[in-house]
Design a protein around this nucleic acid. Structure first.
Length: 273
DNA sequence: CTCACAGCCTGTTTGC
DNA sequence: TGCAAACAGGCTGTGA
């Protein structure tokens, strides 16, 4: 299961408890070939800087430094962990950010879809600049209006629309499926044909599913040194994602699956129209 | 602008 | 049983 927005936010909270004030001693890069190559001069650029804050934009983490900051993305299989400085790397550990205070932040990422990049102005970096509103920080009614306005005239599937980061930040395949089920909207519907009342239900459902996942992940936050991006997802009970052929938890009808824009999509033919 | 799809990658599942 | 092919998906770039 990939880290989605709630897992990234859980990770952010863990880092925010531990990192601010720490000073970067070194960056050890074991594998440069990630989603983008890790810049050669990155280590030198950040050594000696202290961590000011940890922010999140969609599924990107922003580690604010004295000057500029690091953009970090977990990709499909990445997870961050705080480890004691000097702990040996294992297979698939990609880089380790070592702090003077004796701890280190380590990226574990088997599939190398993760990203580590310095930016002088992280919030203006093209990677995050064009992202849509934060689903958890946008009031429900505003979110509903926004989605409806952006969907006008679009004929593509509503699930693909919800997964477009420029429309709304950080909603991945799993939670797009779950939100559509909670809202009673089929994933293959044309975005422009979803009605106002349905957008209202969708906005509420997006909030609900993300908050649920966040709540279940939050309780496992205090593992050893705190950060495990996986904890939340393992605890959230999914209603439709990956449940093709099984019974809908609400009505018992068999969950169906189809492919939309190359992505697995799941819905209940009775609960969702 | 909108939309679909290839490509990146490796662990896991499926199918012969 | 064993191996190869298919699958999984966030994001970007490309082309229609």
């Amino acid at each position: 299961m990939p880290p989605e927005l709630p897992e990234v936010e859980t990770t952010r909270r863990g880092l925010a408890e531990a990192l601010p004030g720490r000073v970067v001693r070194s960056l050890l890069v074991a594998e440069r070939r990630l989603r983008r190559p890790v810049a050669t001069g990155l280590a030198r650029r950040i050594e000696g800087q202290s961590v000011r804050a940890i922010e999140r934009r969609g599924k990107y983490l922003i580690l604010r430094l004295d000057s500029g900051g690091l953009l970090i993305h977990l990709g499909m299989s990445g997870s961050l962990r705080l480890v004691p400085a000097g702990e040996p790397s294992r297979t698939h550990d990609r880089w380790t950010l070592v702090f003077r205070e004796g701890t280190a932040l380590r990226m574990h990422d088997p599939r190398r879809f993760s990203l580590l990049q310095y930016s002088a102005r992280p919030e203006n970096d093209p990677l995050v600049r064009d992202l849509g509103p934060e689903p958890l920080e946008t009031p429900e009614e505003e979110l509903a209006r926004h989605l409806r306005a952006r969907a006008a005239g679009r004929r593509g599937a509503v699930k693909a629309f919800l997964m477009d980061g420029r429309v709304i930040a950080g909603l991945g395949n799993i939670y797009a499926n779950e939100a559509l089920h909670r809202a009673g909207v089929r994933p293959g519907r044309a975005s422009g044909r979803v009605r106002a009342a349905e957008w209202a239900r969708l906005a509420a459902a997006i909030h609900a599913v993300l908050e649920d996942a966040l709540a279940s992940g939050g309780s496992t936050l205090r593992d050893y040194l705190g950060v495990d991006g996986r904890a939340g997802l393992f605890r959230l009970r999914l209603d439709v994602y990956g449940r093709a052929g099984e019974g809908c938890r609400r009505c018992g009808t068999e969950i169906r699956s189809l492919r939309l824009s190359g992505r697995g999509s799941y819905y209940c033919p009775r609960c969702q129209s």
